[in-house]
Simulated assay, not measured.
Amino acid sequence: MKTFTTLILDVRDDIAVITLNDVQRRNALSRRMVGDMFDAIESSQAQGARALVIAANGPTFCAGANIDDLRDGWMEQADPRTDPALLFRRLAEEKRIVVAAVQGPAVGGGFELTLACDLVIAEEGAWFALPEVTRGVIPNTGLALLQHIVGTRQALELVLTGKRLPAPEALQRGLVNEVAEKGASLGRAFELAKSIVANAPPGALAAAKGHLHAHAGYDWGRVVRSVSDVPRAEWQEGLDAFTEKRATDFDRLWQASQRGQQA
């Protein structure tokens, strides 16, 4: 077992379990956590792990991006080692199978983290949401990955409304593979990963996964760049409202946009 600042890596029976462990911050995807994830993935490979399981401690799977990092200009100062979109790309392009075990809310970047995994086991009480647009930002990775799973109209519904999907509805929409009993998601994800690597060789698994994603045709360059397409004033208002625990005031931004169109 190897402990990082924000997570724990445990390789057993040829399966690497990466457990998000920043419970106080609801396992938010901070710069440090993203960097730790990259390091844990590389360490698991060095230890010969044949598959990855991503789980979390505490009541929340992942609450999305760390608000302090966002306010510090994270979206405008991309660092490849701390960019969540590049982490999600790393997982999507990982040759080994990646299974998510979701035991609580997977919000924003937490939802996107599950989209970057190959298979998802969610337990009773887990739920998923992409509230970014309601905060003046966009789920850039979600926009690329989501529609290939649920279709364009459902993807737009989830992105534009930010609605919550409880685990049974996420199963119905194809966003999770199984709903497990409360407390059982990690065990089921581990069993699933172990059964896959026990019954198929590494080259076939890597080829099947790699070609599936290649056929989808993700434009990762666009994914990384797209986060900067939202005007700063809009995401600044969203972050300020979140920090100040108040409703957003986007009406003035609508008015300014309309004045600009009329000029």
Rank of each mutant, 00 (worst) to 15 (best):
F88K: 06
R259M: 12
V17D: 05
A214S: 03
L146V: 14
R81S: 12
V120R: 15
V227N: 02
L160N: 03
A216G: 02
R164H: 10
G221E: 06
Q147C: 05
T152R: 15
E169A: 08
A214N: 01
K209D: 03
A247S: 07
A180W: 08
V99C: 12
E244S: 15
N57G: 13
L192N: 09
I8D: 10
L160Q: 03
L9D: 02
E244V: 10
T248I: 04
S44P: 01
P84A: 09
V53P: 02
Q154H: 07
V197A: 01
E237C: 07
G210W: 00
T5Y: 02
T248C: 09
D249T: 04
T161L: 01
R26Y: 13
E157V: 01
A144Q: 14
E181F: 09
M75A: 10
I54W: 02
I149A: 14
A100V: 14
V102H: 11
W254V: 13
D69C: 05
G221P: 00
A122C: 14
N66A: 07
W127G: 11
V107I: 15
L171A: 13
G151C: 07
G210L: 00
D39F: 00
D69V: 04
R259D: 14
L29T: 02
V98E: 03
D240G: 03
L205D: 00
I54V: 11
R50W: 00
Q258L: 15
I149V: 15
A106N: 11
N199G: 15
D36E: 03
G35D: 03
Q262D: 15
F61C: 12
L91C: 05
T248Y: 00
G73S: 07
V23S: 10
I15R: 02
R31Q: 06
A46D: 07
T6E: 09
F250I: 01
A200C: 06
Q147V: 05
L175A: 11
F38H: 14
P59V: 09
L70T: 06
N57K: 13
G110D: 12
D79R: 11
W220E: 01
R232S: 06
A40W: 00
L156Q: 12
Y218G: 09
L119E: 15
D219T: 05
S226M: 07
A167P: 03
L9F: 01
S228M: 06
V98C: 10
E132H: 13
Q147E: 12
C62A: 14
L143H: 13
G238P: 04
T248V: 13
W127A: 12
E178H: 15
A51T: 07
A51K: 06
L239E: 02
G221H: 04
F61D: 11
V11H: 01
V224R: 06
E181S: 15
L160Y: 01
R222D: 13
L143C: 15
F61S: 12
S30G: 08
V179L: 05
M37Q: 00
R225S: 12
G187E: 10
L115W: 08
L239K: 01
M1F: 00
D249K: 06
L171D: 08
K245S: 14
D22E: 11
V133C: 08
